[in-house]
């Protein structure tokens, strides 16, 4: 079981008090992978009994190093992987994993992938990427209504004028523009929850802030619940209400964002914080390397 140091009861209670309905809850999620090497079979415990709740209008950051199980959690919440045990609950009710129930779930929970260069199909135009989810989740709409919604979505993610982007292909856009398209696609079904799996880690440092600000703004507009997965503590602190620190499949520390960053309890969190670059310690690493020589 995860070493819960700071229960998040007060943070979630606040959201309920505001009267914002809806929650996406991961309850005792476990994911084991069977690794087969010849006849030998071994188990990899990617995610070990994780529970947390994403409330509407709030952001939870999931922080951890590569291989700590962050992305596996994202894929389980997006129903791309089935958990070994445990379940995903939406508004307190268990979520479906096939048929109509899955369709309903998908119109509530959407995902933004890490790599905008890989998450858009190079064969299709931008309008195709946005049209499909609209058509799938709103089958009653006519052609003109779908087209106007596509343009509206592009404008919401600040790709203006929309007509300039509709017929383009992904390779004609920059990384930041592509990630905006990916965000628009996640918004298309009218989801209440967005899982953002390292949405800016593949982007240039200079354009990360723009994309993150856009996400925050959209969240504010539509009271979205966001699960922000990252390995970057600085952005996690800036953009989230609550931080969960993951290490080897376990949540080792959780609590309000500022609390976790300013007053880390777990050893691993402290190590993560130390590893993050800090302007105060400018040149410290250089001195360390020189001393080693």
């Amino acid at each position: 079981m995860s070493a819960t140091i700071m229960p998040s009861a007060d943070a979630t209670g606040e959201a309920r008090a505001q009267g914002q309905g809806g929650s996406l809850e991961a309850r005792n999620l476990v994911k084991d992978f069977r690794l087969r090497s010849g006849l030998k079979v071994s188990m990899l415990h990617a995610v070990k009994d994780i529970s947390f709740t994403v409330e509407a209008g709030r952001t939870i950051a999931l922080v951890g190093e590569s291989g700590s199980g962050k992305s596996t959690i994202a894929r389980m919440l997006a129903k791309l992987e089935a958990p070994s045990s445990g379940g995903v609950f939406i508004d307190g009710a268990p979520s479906g994993s096939r048929g109509r129930a899955l369709e309903r779930y998908r119109s509530e929970v959407q995902m933004v992938f890490q790599d905008p260069f890989a998450s858009l199909n190079p064969f299709h135009s931008i309008s195709h990427h946005l049209e499909r989810p609209i058509r799938l989740h709103h089958p009653g709409l006519g052609r003109a209504e779908v087209a106007s919604r596509v343009e509206e979505l592009l404008e919401r993610v600040q790709l203006e004028p929309a007509t300039r982007y509709l017929e383009r292909r992904p390779h004609e856009l920059s990384g930041g523009q592509r990630q905006r398209v990916a965000i628009a696609r996640a918004l298309a079904p009218g989801a209440r929850f967005i899982i953002a799996d390292e949405p800016v880690s593949m982007l240039d440092v200079s354009i990360r802030l723009g994309v993150l600000n856009l996400l925050a703004e959209l969240q504010r507009e539509a009271q979205l619940g966001v699960l922000y997965i990252t390995h970057d503590l600085a952005t996690a602190r800036h953009f989230s209400d609550e931080i969960l620190v993951m290490y080897r499949g376990d949540i080792v520390e959780r609590g309000p964002a500022d609390e976790v960053i300013l007053n880390p309890q777990h050893e691993y969190t402290m190590r993560l914080l130390e590893a993050a670059a800090d302007p105060e310690r400018h040149g410290a690493l250089r001195d360390e390397v020189r001393r080693a020589e």
Partner: peptide
């Protein structure tokens, strides 16, 4: 934090973190 646009200083922090 998501409620406000970042100031110049915070922007600096985010970038320096990288």
């Amino acid at each position: 934090m998501s409620e406000t646009e970042l100031t110049e200083r915070e922007l600096h922090d985010v970038q320096v973190a990288e």
